[in-house]
Simulated scan of single mutants.
Amino acid sequence: MLNQKEILSTIEMIDQQHLDIRTITMGISLLSCCDPDPRRACEKVYEKICRCAERLVKTGQDIEDEFGIPIVNKRISVTPMALVAGASETEDYVPFALALDKAAQSCGVNFIGGYSALVQKGMTQADERLIRSIPEALARTELVCSSVNVGSTRAGVNMDAVALMGRIVKETADRTADRDGLGCAKLVVFCNAVEDNPFMAG
């Protein structure tokens, strides 16, 4: 049983110290969306995200109402898109970012993560194509977040990827200069990513 002191302490944390839940995130595997036809793959991506995350925002709001603690962001994370797009016969990966953005807006979430590549062990052709598309993808979307894992404790650091990402970060800043370089705020370059599951880079 909660006593009066604990209840008042909780109210104080919410009212005066701005206690909140930073985010809730739904992870969705998109491996089943792989298709040689890129247009069809993008349709599958959009359809699956909308189907799985249809009630995410409503559920978050229900949790806020039940416990009286605000949830700042409702997010979706998906399988690294280099894995999904790599199965399609295309060199243009930006439509996959647009499909993610459209799905995120349809679901009403704040962000969607997963326009990503894991290159700590080396870059495949699909990884490199995705990385080179990041500046345009982030310039043309609103809710998409991107990340590139360039190293790990076990594999070491992929210095080719580090060099490439330096140029990508600069180009992303240039492409979103009209929005104070906002693209770079949605791009994470890091090491030791969580593997084998959809994740969202902090």
Rank of each mutant, 00 (worst) to 15 (best):
E66C: 06
P95D: 01
M159R: 07
C145Q: 05
K58A: 14
A155L: 00
V57N: 02
N192V: 12
G202A: 14
T23F: 13
G113V: 05
D160M: 09
A193K: 08
L100F: 01
E89N: 14
T79S: 14
R132Y: 12
V188I: 09
A103N: 07
D15N: 11
V144W: 07
A41K: 12
D62M: 13
G113Q: 09
I21L: 12
D92E: 10
L30Q: 02
L83M: 04
T90M: 03
E43Y: 08
K186R: 14
A117M: 09
E195H: 15
G183H: 00
D37N: 12
R132Q: 12
E142L: 13
A163T: 08
C42W: 08
I11K: 11
L164G: 07
Q120L: 09
G122C: 13
G151F: 07
R175K: 10
L31H: 11
M81P: 11
C42Y: 06
P36V: 07
F199H: 01
T176N: 01
Q16G: 04
V148L: 02
V45M: 08
N197E: 11
F111M: 13
A163I: 02
K44N: 15
A41L: 14
R55W: 02
I69Y: 10
Y93K: 03
E66K: 14
V194M: 14
D15E: 13
Q17E: 11
G156L: 04
G202K: 15
A193E: 12
P198D: 08
A201C: 10
S32K: 15
S147P: 00
K48W: 02
C107I: 03
S32G: 11
A139E: 03
M123C: 15
L182I: 13
R22S: 01
P80G: 05
F199N: 06
T124G: 15
L118D: 14
M81T: 09
I131P: 09
D15C: 01
L19H: 07
R39K: 15
V162M: 09
C33K: 11
C50D: 10
R22F: 02
G68W: 05
V72W: 04
L164I: 06
D37H: 05
N149F: 03
C50T: 15
D180N: 09
E171G: 10
K102F: 03
A155D: 02
R132N: 14
I112Q: 08
S152A: 01
P80V: 03
K58I: 04
L100W: 02
I28T: 10
